[in-house]
Design a protein around this nucleic acid. Structure first.
Lengths: 337, 337
DNA sequence: CTTGGCACTCAGAGGAGAAGAGTGCCAGAT
DNA sequence: ATCTGGCACTCTTCTCCTCTGAGTGCCAAG
């Protein structure tokens, strides 16, 4: 259906369009790539490619521009992920290695990705649901107020204030703290409800109200309300890549957690990289943008996702390389810390 | 120098320009505001105002536009802060009242401000330097790793991992924790170095290395590196208020913590509201924007600042009203929690 | 000090024309 | 069967021009 040369032509069109940002014509194509045939031949190929929906012309007397379908084919079959240069890799390594806590890792990662790809970076905090408990702390901070702090194996710290509505002895708190830690250490957050189901039975009667209160807060805040925090960076790069009218829409979309969430999406592809092109995106305002995302995490298991958002006319091989490399390094950092 | 009518003319120019976004001419002015004189008279006044630098014309045959100096005069002498409507106040109250922890308060505040003013909101986390210690926690999380958690009276929780480089007994940790809490409870963060200066002397010799390590991390992370966290919201509003060329510059400026920091600035004005107009701003890229900021905090003492950034042609009375009202409510929330 | 009148300036809208890039198609060459 | 050169055609885009109208500054009279 599409012979090798037509594919080569499509590849050339994508590459040229990405670098020049202008519709590419048959003449320019043979000049820049030595395809060994004449412009007229290319024109015939282009006609076929257009008929099949891989490219389109903005108006009659203009060159061709790849469609979403064209980019899709390019990404799937015509491009190879571009590995980073040694210098870039060293930069990533040193930049991330200096991070001193989880917040810092995430914020450095987002800046790094944005700089590397010159686009908008999106990084999700290591998800609570896929983490396990490393430590639970219960701290009295006022007469009838406790602070519950949970530390996960991904280094995340969640805290929540608890109103006890009655005075509580330090012993009761210490007791409950010990019990919680004994039960929950190493426990997956998703398993917490099961593990804790019969907790109150193992507590002296006098301490049961406290235990029940703490427990409900613990469950509510960590399991049910597992808000997935996402941060973005490099928004200024949007202004450079003038997305026609839609800049406003894109900025709005980026402010909604829910949209970002769905943007990073699920890992359909076990190998890692997910690419969503233009209208494949689950949001109206992002019709002219593409997303390159992947999972990352300590060791093999992905605990969260990160990615990059840019105009559909982005440099896919380069972006994919950068996203993959950053995800790997972040994984290493998380595993090591 | 400027009689009452000239001031009235300036006020009218600012108001009209803010609402129409177009240079305002003498005729339009007498039509919209009943000034009781003819356009020709207004023209004379305008000539004076222009000579003094309060207004300017984009080109010879256009109406007048306020200069930064003109806005300054308007803000200082010609406008009164506009109180919010009852509905708006109720909205603020209910929206903020539902916040369940400090992070949530801050993120709700930033969204609220952005919506209310339809501009970019900037909120600084309650500053550590102006907070006091409520509790210190020391948690073993692995063989040679501790987690130091500090809770402040503003509800902020800071954590930092510590490498001990040798095994540490639980007793030593408990001992140190007790000592730290006894010493630091209620202590201003800025006083921490003084209070802790002789700490190691009060520790058994065997625990001194641990104490020294913990102490250095504590001092470094909480006092020296008191990174002031700032979050922004409503960036999409920038796209609406098309700032000529500089959108890119503004977005870039907003990504730099340092710039944001200086943007909110210090409270020169004890009464509260600080307004920085156009070139009064400390940053190149923000020449065409103004900032309305104020301090906020639990009770009387301001512990951090918040504000709004928008084009110089913003609705100052309305924006100032919104900023002031939000700051007050946030203060109440913080005091109450 | 204010006002009406008047000449002047200049940005912006609208239109005509020329230039140029790119296409589609066809007949001939390989 | 495929490629190629040529050619007519189609549009966008750029430039140049004119025209319009808003708004001004100035002046002389009230």
């Amino acid at each position: 259906m599409l012979d090798d040369r037509k594919l080569a032509v499509l590849r050339a069109i994508v590459e040229d369009y990405v670098s020049t940002h202008e519709p590419v014509g048959s003449k320019a194509l043979v000049d820049r790539h030595n395809l060994g045939v004449s412009p007229a031949t290319i024109r015939n190929d282009m006609a076929v490619l257009e008929e099949q929906g891989y490219i389109a012309q903005p108006h009659t007397s203009a060159g061709r521009v790849p469609t979403d379908k064209g980019y899709r084919l390019f990404v799937d079959r015509l491009s190879t992920i571009k590995p980073l240069s040694a210098a870039e890799r060293r930069a990533i390594e040193t930049f991330l290695a200096n991070a001193y806590d989880l917040d810092d890792v995430v914020s450095r990662t987002v800046r790094l990705l944005a700089q590397l790809t010159r686009q908008v970076a999106v990084v999700q905090y290591p998800s609570l649901t896929r983490s396990s408990v490393r430590h639970v702390e219960l701290v009295p901070i006022a007469a009838q107020r406790l602070l519950l702090v949970v530390i996960t194996n991904t280094g995340r710290v969640e805290q929540r204030a608890i109103e006890t509505h009655e005075d509580v002895s330090d012993e009761a708190i210490a007791h409950l703290r010990a019990l919680l830690n004994a039960r929950l250490d190493g426990c997956w957050l998703t398993d917490v409800p099961d593990v804790m189901a019969d907790l109150t039975e193992h507590v002296p009667v006098g301490e049961r109200p406290l235990a029940a209160t703490v427990l409900s807060v613990l469950l509510e805040s960590l399991v049910e309300k597992h808000e997935e925090k996402i941060i973005i960076g490099g928004a200024a790069n949007l202004a450079r890549a003038d997305l026609s009218q839609s800049l406003r829409d894109v900025l709005e979309a980026l402010e909604e957690q829910v949209v970002l969430m769905r943007l990073l999406g699920e890992a359909e592809n076990p190998s890692g990289l997910t690419v969503r092109i233009g209208t494949e995106n689950p949001h109206e305002g992002l019709r002219t943008t593409s997303v390159v995302a992947t999972g990352y995490g300590a060791g093999d298991q992905a605990v969260a996702r990160l990615g990059v958002l840019g105009p559909t006319r982005m440099d896919y091989p380069g972006t994919m390389g950068a996203v993959r490399a950053v995800a790997r390094y972040v994984g290493q950092i998380l595993a090591g810390s």
